[in-house]
Amino acid sequence: MSGAGVPLRELGLVLLVAAAITYLATGVVRSALVRTGRVAEIRQRDVHTQPTPSVGGLAMFTGFAGAYLLAQQLPALTRGFAPLTPEMTAVFFGGLAILAVGIVDDLYELGALTKLFGQFAAAAVMSVLGIAFTVFYVPFGEGTTLILDQIQGMVLSAIFTVLLINAVNFVDGIDGLAAGLGMIAGTAILIYSLSVLHDQGGAVSAYPPAIICALLVGICAGFLPHNFEPARIFMGDSGAMLIGLLLSAASISASGKINMSLYGAADLVALVSPIIVVLAAIALPVLDLVWAVVRRTARGQSPFQADAGHIHHRLLRLGHTHRRTVLVLYMWVSAVAFGAVSFSVIPFRFAVGFTLVALVTAFLLTLVPLAKGKIGPTGASSSSKSSRPVG
Rank of each mutant, 00 (worst) to 15 (best):
I98P: 01
V101S: 00
Q72D: 12
L99R: 06
T78E: 12
P83Q: 07
L96W: 12
T62F: 09
A82S: 14
F64H: 06
I98T: 09
L99A: 12
E87N: 02
F81P: 00
E87R: 09
T85S: 14
L69T: 13
G63H: 11
L74Q: 06
E87F: 02
F92P: 00
A67R: 03
A82D: 13
V101Q: 02
L96K: 11
G66C: 13
F64M: 06
A82Y: 09
L99N: 06
A82F: 13
T62E: 12
P86R: 01
L99G: 04
G94K: 01
A90P: 00
F81K: 03
R79L: 12
P83C: 13
A82C: 08
F93N: 09
T85C: 12
A65K: 07
A65D: 01
A90H: 01
V101P: 00
F92A: 13
R79M: 12
L70Y: 10
A71V: 11
L77W: 01
P86F: 03
G63L: 10
A100K: 10
Y68F: 14
E87D: 02
F93I: 05
V101H: 07
A90G: 07
F93L: 14
F81Y: 14
L74G: 04
P83R: 08
L69Y: 14
F93V: 03
Q72N: 12
T62I: 15
A67D: 00
L74N: 05
V91P: 00
A100M: 14
A90Q: 04
L70W: 12
P83D: 08
